[in-house]
């Protein structure tokens, strides 16, 4: 009896000793923060940008829009297709040069979709740098170059957070900037529609984009009057394709597309005429009315200081369709 108790005691002690050797499973730890919180880092940018320009250059070389679609999408395909069409018709300057070298890249820090990435290229020959916008529709999509616009002469882009951190993509109705991106776009479209006499004109700093638009409107109005006709234009935007990105100082960059339709109609048997470069795009036979459709893209800087006026820092006016009716 006494011997059995001793054996049991020794066994228990042995088990305790052995149990003491085995540590517990490590406890769960909190996920450490990522070192780079942006949606895309420089590593990813270095894959996206070259792939984009490789596709673009291949399409440019072949003047074949079918070669686009993987890394170049959205309105950029449409615009580039028109440029190829014009180039094939003999317009050697139709295809815009978009340098593949980036001066800066602004990326989103958001975890939601769609996301944007903005690159500022080196300045092409005889032109200002290009602001190009990539869009990632959803988690299963890759970034596509969808819009671009040359910087307005004299404009400067604000400082932006680096690629390791990224910028917040702001809701269009955010109150972090005043006025909100949505309000700015709506007001600017109203200004474009109404011209320099608009009540919204004092709310924006001067820019060459609207000056050229107003100048063209004036010329076309004069031409229409000469033919006893009329001129009208229709300017609209799509908020669904408008994005805002926070700047480093608390302001915002707003990227918005514009659709501009300008119609010229003459009477008394007169016939409208268009430039030779645009004739390749004419759909139908030119008679007394012609409508040009443009796909524009503008970038507006809303300063963090509400006392400063929003200003257009980049804008392009791309002809995408000419209708002879």
């Amino acid at each position: 009896m006494r011997r059995n108790a001793a054996i049991i005691g020794a066994s228990a002690a042995g088990l305790l000793v052995l149990a003491g050797c085995t540590p517990a499973v490590p406890a769960a730890v909190d996920a450490p923060p990522a070192q780079e919180t942006s949606a895309v880092t420089q590593t990813q940018i270095d894959r996206i940008v070259p792939a984009t320009f490789a596709e673009l250059q291949a399409a440019d070389k072949a003047k074949d829009v079918e070669k686009l679609g993987t890394r170049v999408g959205g309105a950029a395909v449409r615009i580039r297709g028109v440029e190829y069409q014009l180039a094939k018709a003999g317009d050697k300057a139709a295809i815009e040069e978009i340098p593949s070298t980036m001066q800066a890249v602004y990326v989103s820090a958001d975890e939601t979709f769609p996301r944007i990435m903005v690159g500022v290229t080196a300045a092409p020959d005889g032109a200002t740098p290009v602001v190009a916008m990539w869009l990632q529709e959803d988690v299963n999509s890759d970034y596509q170059l969808v819009e671009w616009a040359h910087m307005v002469p004299g404009a400067t882009l604000p400082a932006m957070p680096g690629t390791a951190v990224g910028s917040a993509q702001l809701p269009l109705d955010t109150d972090t900037v005043t006025p909100s991106p949505k309000q700015v776009v709506e007001d600017y479209v109203q200004l474009l529609r109404e011209g320099n006499k608009s009540e919204k004109a004092p709310e924006f700093a001067k820019d060459t984009y609207r000056e050229r638009l107003f100048a063209a409107r004036k010329v076309l109005n004069a031409a229409a009057e000469k033919g006893d006709g009329s001129y009208s234009d229709f300017i609209d935007t799509r908020m669904s394709d408008t994005y805002a990105m926070a700047t480093a100082d608390g302001g915002a960059l707003v990227f918005t597309p514009l659709t501009v339709k300008s119609s010229l109609k003459v009477k008394n048997g007169a016939t409208v005429s268009i430039s030779d470069a645009d004739k390749a795009l004419v759909n139908g036979k030119l008679k007394d009315k012609v409508t040009h459709t443009y796909r524009d893209f503008i970038v507006i800087h809303i300063p963090a200081n509400a006392d400063e006026k929003p200003v257009v820092v980049a804008a392009d006016h791309h002809l995408i369709k000419v209708e002879a009716k």
Binding site: A75, R78, P114, P171, S240, T259
Partner: peptide, 14 residues
């Protein structure tokens, strides 16, 4: 998070 997201697939531009 974005009002524009829900309608973006229906973009008619291209």
């Amino acid at each position: 998070a974005s009002a524009s997201a829900s309608t973006s697939p229906s973009a008619s531009a291209s």
